[in-house]
């Protein structure tokens, strides 16, 4: 019982992070039919921006918690701005070009951001200072759950719920869904599709920045290539849920986190990735379009 609860919380923590990052892949794909390969790097950029903010202004101690909140705000703002810039510089000029050109541009942008992080920050592992947040541990039926885990789970679920409400119950959210279905028809409604595209490059990276900074705070270290690792996991989560589908990315992220944790807890931590991916392949064999995915029609 203790192991089960422990792994469930571990899984929800990591799953919440995957889900936050996966949303950026799925929203951009939904509107543009493009995998933004630079998304993972943007998210980890968020972790570095947050870390810089904490180490340059943070005195630790009782100021820690407030500092962490400011670090999140800074990370979100910087990464959202980088997202808009990325769309303008790397994707908009290729809007009417061959799809492959945009993919190559995405890969190039990924390398640019990754190496940019290495140059600006460090080619070594950067460590988050300790004592930023309460170190309280909750004991439930033999499992120990840290304050940081509770925070990550709570914040990621609140953000996901907020996004869900925004997309499904506001005028602009409906416009985003409409543009994802049919851009020309959306234009005929009076929707400015460029603005919709810009908005997904704000929302996706903003959520991703929170996810990236969570990675740093949870593992207490960041490294410039981590964008690729976490980006890949989150991308797989988006595929698992059904790429282009927003609730799908949330479910996919949480499930991937849970698979990972239970595989590590009950089977073998060195085999956790192998077991996770075997399960994923199984699910995709049964549902090739992902859990909530529909047949993705080729755009004409």
């Amino acid at each position: 019982m203790g192991t089960f609860i422990q792994q469930m919380f571990n899984g929800l923590t990591v799953g919440g992070i995957y889900a936050l990052i996966a949303l950026g892949y799925t929203m951009v794909y939904g509107v543009m039919r493009l995998i933004n390969f630079a998304h993972g790097d943007l998210c980890i950029l968020g972790a570095f921006v947050g870390l810089t903010f904490i180490t340059s202004f943070g005195g630790g101690g009782h100021l820690g918690a407030a500092m962490v909140i400011f670090a999140f705000v800074a990370a979100v703002l910087v990464v959202a701005a980088a997202g808009v810039l990325l769309e303008l510089a790397a994707y908009r000029p290729l809007r009417k070009a061959d799809r492959l050109a945009a993919v190559v541009s995405a890969l190039g942008a990924s390398m640019l951001i990754e190496n940019g992080i290495m140059l600006v920050w460090s080619p070594q592992v950067s460590v988050f200072p300790s004592g930023l947040l309460p170190t309280t541990t909750y004991h439930i039926a033999g499992a120990s759950i840290s304050f940081v885990q509770v925070m990550i789970i709570a914040v990621s679920f609140v953000l996901m719920a907020a996004l869900y409400l925004f997309v499904n119950h506001t005028r602009f959210g409906t416009a985003i869904r409409a543009a994802a279905i049919d851009q020309d028809a959306a234009r005929l409604m009076g929707i400015n599709v460029n603005r919709v595209i810009a908005s997904v490059f704000v929302i996706g990276p903003a959520l991703g920045a929170v996810g990236g900074l969570f990675v740093g705070i949870y593992y207490r270290e960041v490294y410039f290539t981590m964008g690729w690792t976490y980006g890949l996991y989150a991308f797989i989560a988006a595929i698992l849920g059904g790429i282009g589908n927003i609730p799908g990315a949330m479910i996919g992220g949480i499930l991937l986190g849970l698979f990972n944790a239970f595989a590590a807890g009950y089977l073998s931590s060195s085999w956790q990735d192998a077991i996770t991916f075997a399960l994923l392949i199984g699910i995709l064999l049964v549902r090739p379009t992902g859990i909530l995915g529909e047949r993705v029609a080729e755009k004409v």
Binding site: T174, A175, R177, A178, I181, A185, L188, M189, E294
Partner: peptide
Amino acid sequence: RVFGTLTVMENLRL
């Protein structure tokens, strides 16, 4: 070109 995965009401509001 109706938005097939949206409801009739959502289409009209759009």
